[in-house]
């Protein structure tokens, strides 16, 4: 079994590199398709043809795009992420601190929301059709039906403006103690949990309910197993595949998709970095951000696939 997992991981690693290449090429191609280049965007309204031409020459933008792409790939292979077009700083320098911030926020949110979501999902499935189940289902949907920016803004209005319990802005780099950590992360984490928990709760519930209907679980019931034992021992392992996939999909949102939370709480993460990079057509920065998102996503789904295989003896 272990060798099988190892070979899977190894295969996935190989495939991951290919996927990364495809993504980087797709992102590169997409960026090239966007109208305007970095010289035009940086000059903005001042972009007269001569000014653009001058800046383009100075930034070596006149080389064929594919050449710049290959140069960037080569740099990546040698561990050099390149220099940002927009401000001439090394990409690693621009990304470093912000990537750590994003990881912190993602980790805290995951630690907070995954256990809650799983508990709610499984219990709702166990008590399927009950009032509890209906309440959980309805509230789950109600919560994600509210746009993220509205949740975030309401939270700020209530907790920062009226009650003055929490700061309206979350500067991750000013955290020195656990108390401060709680204060700074409270609102962004709650907002994000609202967004990502729903998918996990709903999918967990649906997957568990589905396995509860299968003959072997019913058999277990007939044998007189307790409901609790039946769900945890028999149903859950078989439902684990779809559940971990739902979790992986939800968590993959936490790096690149948190732009609204980053904007409203002024949290310096990499989602905003990516948006900036697209706006300025800063190709090396776009590429690097896209690589990070892609890697995180591949990591999560590979993990999900491994757990799925481990949990289902027939897949081994």
């Amino acid at each position: 079994m272990n060798t099988q997992i190892l070979s899977l991981v190894f295969k996935r690693l190989l495939v991951a590199i290919v996927t990364l290449l495809i993504v980087s090429f797709a992102v590169f191609f997409a960026t090239e398709m966007l109208p305007g280049d970095v010289a035009e965007i940086l000059l903005g309204q001042a972009a007269t043809p001569e000014a653009v031409a001058g800046l383009r020459t100075a930034m070596h933008l006149n080389d064929p795009a594919i050449l710049r792409f290959i140069r960037w790939l080569y740099g990546l292979a040698t561990g050099d992420l390149g220099i940002s077009y927009a401000n001439n700083m090394p990409i690693s320098h621009l990304i470093g601190g912000r990537f750590v911030n994003s990881l912190k926020l993602a980790a805290v949110t995951a630690l907070f929301s995954v256990p809650i979501a799983l508990t709610l999902g499984i219990t709702a499935a166990m008590l399927r059709g009950s009032l509890y189940d209906r309440i959980v289902t309805t509230i789950t949907i109600a919560v994600i039906s509210v746009p993220e920016f509205m949740v975030a803004t309401s939270a700020v209005l209530i907790f920062a403006v009226y009650l003055k319990w929490l700061p309206a802005l979350s500067f991750a780099n000013e955290v020195h103690s656990f108390g401060e950590l709680l204060r700074v992360f409270a609102m962004p984490v709650i907002t994000l949990s609202f967004v990502i928990s729903a998918q996990m709760i709903r999918m967990t519930r649906a997957a568990v309910v589905e396995t509860l209907n299968t003959p072997y679980v019913e058999m277990a019931l007939l044998k007189g197993a307790s409901r609790r034992r039946m769900v945890l021992k028999h149903a859950l392992p078989n439902a684990l595949g779809p559940i971990v996939n739902a979790i992986a999909l939800s968590l993959s949102y936490l790096l690149g998709g948190v732009i609204i939370v980053e904007t409203i709480f002024n949290y310096p993460g990499i989602a905003k970095l990516m948006v900036d990079a697209v706006a300025t057509r800063d190709l090396p920065l776009i590429q690097t951000c896209a690589m990070i998102f892609c890697l995180a996503y591949l990591f999560l789904i590979t993990l999900a696939d491994i757990i799925a295989i481990l949990s289902n003896p027939r897949l081994r």
């Binding site: 996927t19 495809i22 993504v23 690149g256 697209v278 896209a290 998102f293 996503y297 591949l298």
Partner: peptide
Amino acid sequence: LDALNSIP
């Protein structure tokens, strides 16, 4: 499709 999903 993984690659597609990775494009913001």
